[in-house]
Amino acid sequence: MRRRTTKKARHGVRRFTCLLAAVLTLGACGIAPTEVRGLGRPPVISYSPTWVTVYLLSDGRLVPKKIPVGSDSAKNIVDTLFRAGKQLPRFRTGKQLPIKGLTSALNDFSHHGTETTRYHDDNQRNDPAGNLGYRLSVIVTGGHEMSREGLAQITCTIRQNKQESIWSVEVTRLFPGQPKTWGEHTCFEYRDLAAKGVRLPP
């Protein structure tokens, strides 16, 4: 006794027949599946860091050292200066020494922030165009009295990298205790602290 074919079964057969015909038609048109091919290593983005010059100390004298930074903003430059003085590479003996024998007078302080203000000093600048320069306020925390060498490190580092825009540097301690400022400076006044053969910025 033959089984009657249901509508559902007949519909399934027709669907399979249509799919088979479609596959055969594509094959007849010359379309063949392709293999996955490797295209080699992904592209590598090269990164060229910006180099800035910071001033550290050797026997109390200012010595320049080039250090790579992500950007040459004033904040990054000052951050790099403070960080450079505290980086103590570890040797096989386990003893820690400052970078290549250099030290810093800023290790008791931390950089809190920087602010720029515009000003024009007619007594120091003979600028007929009337261009305005900037004063950079460097705000620190910690420590007590900042030494002349520490002020020279900050001032000369900023002036070395920002001579065109920053005319003077002011250093202020925010805390502990009452806020205190050590005044406004240029690197020229610290020329007596330059190590032998080192030429400081103005």
Results as ranks from 00 to 15, higher is better:
His120Cys: 10
Gln87Phe: 15
Asp127Gly: 06
Lys162Leu: 08
Lys100His: 14
Gln163Leu: 15
Thr141Ile: 11
Leu97Phe: 15
Gly85Asp: 00
Asp127Cys: 08
Pro98Gln: 04
Thr141Gln: 11
Ile158Glu: 03
Asn76Asp: 14
Arg135Thr: 09
Lys162Arg: 15
Cys187Pro: 02
Gly85Val: 00
Arg92Gln: 13
Gly70Arg: 10
Asn161Val: 01
Asp121Lys: 08
Ser168Val: 10
Gly142Tyr: 04
Lys100Gly: 13
Ile99Tyr: 11
Phe175Trp: 12
Asp108Arg: 08
Phe82Gln: 00
Gly133Ala: 08
Leu174Cys: 09
His144Lys: 13
Phe175Gln: 11
Arg61Met: 09
Arg135Lys: 11
Val140Asn: 04
Ser168Trp: 02
Pro98Thr: 05
Arg90Gln: 11
Thr93Leu: 05
Gly113His: 05
Asn76His: 12
Ser73Lys: 01
Thr186Arg: 11
Thr114Phe: 03
Pro68Ala: 10
Lys196Asp: 12
His111Arg: 07
Ser73Thr: 13
Asn126Val: 10
Lys66Arg: 15
Thr172Glu: 06
Asp127Pro: 03
Gly60Thr: 04
Gly70Leu: 09
Ala195Lys: 03
Thr103Gly: 07
Asp108Gly: 11
Arg92Val: 12
Ile77Phe: 00
Gln96Thr: 15
Ile158Asp: 00
Thr114Ala: 09
Thr172Met: 08
Thr117Gln: 09
Asp108Phe: 08
His120Thr: 10
Gly177Glu: 12
Pro64Ser: 06
Leu106Cys: 05
Arg135Val: 04
Gly142Ala: 07
Lys196Ser: 14
Gln124Tyr: 14
Phe82Ser: 02
Arg135Leu: 12
His185Leu: 10
Ser58Lys: 13
Gly85Tyr: 00
Leu136Ser: 02
Thr155Ser: 07
Tyr190Pro: 06
Phe109Lys: 02
Glu149Met: 06
Gly142Met: 03
Ser110Leu: 11
Gly133Lys: 05
Ala105Trp: 02
Glu164Val: 11
